[in-house]
């Protein structure tokens, strides 16, 4: 009996070891698709085969109140790897009781096709991203079904932590798989917290992950931003500025970890920083990423097929050694 147990355990260990690691993927979240050399090199080095590209948002026309595409992407070059278009649906679009979901699905389908045609690409799946609420879940889930119907393409969706924690209330999207957004956990504030990732907040949500009735892929943050405070109030939020750039600039003096005060009024990257302003940098370290992966790995019911990093941008990827991405997926 004891022997049987050992064999069984060994079998489990071995089988776990043989299970492939999640694939590395990225979100591309800019309005012009043109990879820089560094971005291309990273994709090649990490053998990335699949990219999620934000195609457009759906918002409401201020004139007519009807759904319209917002800031559609322009392909300056043709992607050479498999892509999944991502469409962000603003929640307000689905709040309208009279929204024609079927028509919206057709419009989204057609618009994606128009972009695909222009870019010369074909796609095998579409991802819908929406911070749906109890009030909009019915419309959002119907939109997924309708888009599936018209596009005959696999539809996936994003899910947020609060949607995973309260599936009874928030519903479960009718998709084969979903991607858990493991970031944007807090609010921007002058406190020592990090709005991108906060372990304490995350811990309040992860306990329900194992019982979520869908297979989950995971999206992890690699972005950072600079928050500018004047008289205690937030006056600007600027992405794509590294902490190093601030730390090495004589116009700033470090107050404490991630906080700097502005010594002299000056311009930096098109933003004016006034003497006396306080600057806070929110960023995600390699340790943060490994910790996130470990926590998720302990709580997810199944191993994710993909870990998608948000977002592919030279400025973001500069912050990390390329090995980090591989190390992170090896946590699963």
């Amino acid at each position: 009996m004891k022997l049987l147990r050992v064999i069984l355990l060994l079998f489990i260990v071995l089988s776990c070891k043989n299970e492939p690691k999640p694939a590395i993927s990225f979100y591309y979240w800019k309005t012009r698709y043109a990879l820089t050399t560094q971005e291309s090199k990273l994709l090649t080095a990490l053998k990335v085969q699949h990219l999620y590209i934000r195609y457009f948002d759906v918002g409401l026309s201020p004139q007519t109140g009807l759904p319209i595409p917002v800031s559609p992407i322009l392909f300056v070059e043709k992607p050479t790897l498999q892509i999944t278009p991502v469409v962000y649906i603003q929640n307000k679009v689905l709040l309208n009781k009279n929204v024609n979901v079927s028509l919206l699905a057709q419009q989204i389908h057609s618009f994606i096709n128009q972009i695909n045609k222009r870019a010369g690409v074909s796609v095998k799946s579409i991802q819908l991203d929406c911070d749906w609420t109890e009030n909009t879940k019915v419309h959002f889930f119907k939109l997924i079904e309708q888009l599936q119907h018209f596009s005959k393409t696999k539809i996936t969706s994003t899910v947020r932590l609060h949607q995973v924690k309260y599936p009874e209330k928030m519903g479960v999207p009718p998709v084969a798989e979903a991607t858990l957004m493991y970031y944007n956990m807090g609010v921007l504030s002058i406190k020592n917290t990090n709005s991108i990732y906060d372990k304490d907040i995350a811990n309040k949500y992860v306990n329900r992950l194992h019982s979520y009735p869908k297979n989950l892929n995971v999206a992890l943050p690699i972005y950072s931003w600079v928050i500018q405070f004047r008289n205690g109030k937030i006056i600007s939020l600027t992405s794509k500025i590294s902490e190093k750039k601030i730390a090495n600039n004589k116009n700033y003096s470090k107050k404490k970890e991630h906080f700097y005060s502005v010594l002299n009024s000056h311009y930096l990257e098109g933003v004016f920083y006034k003497k006396g302003d306080l600057i806070k940098i929110e960023t995600i370290s390699e340790e943060n990423l490994l910790e996130m992966a470990k926590i998720l790995s302990n709580h997810l019911q199944t191993k994710p097929k993909e870990v998608v990093f948000y977002d592919l941008d030279e400025q973001n990827i500069n912050t990390y050694e390329k090995e980090v991405f591989t190390k992170v997926v090896h946590q699963f």
Binding site: Y27, W29, K30, T31, R32, T36, Q38, R54, S71, Y88, Q90, D129, C130, D131, T158, M181, N184, A219, Y223, W225, L237, S239, K240, I241, E269, Y310, D311, D313, E314, Q315
Partner: peptide, 13 residues
């Protein structure tokens, strides 16, 4: 090399 590109400030909704 620094290249600051314009991007939608904050992504995924």
């Amino acid at each position: 090399k620094w290249y600051i590109s314009f991007s939608i400030l904050i992504g995924l909704g």
